[in-house]
């Protein structure tokens, strides 16, 4: 029952936040959205957040040591695949398959 309430509140919260971000442009008028500060943030915040999310995914592993080499290598593979084919699915599946292989062989 505890699990039910935890997950229900998480789902309700994320559903609300996601809907809010999709509805925002329809609620505010063009004038507010045209504000140069919002434009500045809208331009530079998304790329920053993406990089932070990549780092966040490894928050327990990041260190200046050889142990982090498999993660770095697979991220590089994702990058190369994506630059070559620009198909999100190929890049994600390729990098993940390689990482799973390394982990299950005991390298990761």
């Amino acid at each position: 029952m505890n699990e039910f309430w935890t997950l229900s509140s998480v789902i309700a919260l994320l559903a609300g936040v996601t809907f809010l971000t999709r509805a925002l442009p329809f609620m505010v008028l063009g004038r507010v959205a045209d504000h140069p500060l919002l434009e500045h943030l809208g331009r530079f915040l998304p790329p920053i957040v993406m990089v932070l999310l990549v780092i966040y995914s490894f928050k327990h592993d990041v260190a200046f040591s050889l142990n982090f080499l498999p993660e770095l290598g697979c991220l590089l593979l994702v990058t190369v695949l994506h630059l070559a084919f620009r198909q999100a699915l190929i890049s994600i599946v390729g990098g993940t398959a390689m990482y799973m292989l390394l982990v299950q062989m005991g390298v990761g």
Partner: peptide, 22 residues
């Protein structure tokens, strides 16, 4: 079958989004 390491799809997805942003 073992799914160990499958959590890598997360950073992989964010990496793809990073490249798209660039």
């Amino acid at each position: 079958f073992s799914t160990a390491g499958i959590a890598f799809v997360l950073p992989a997805l964010f990496m793809v989004l990073t490249i798209e942003q660039y």
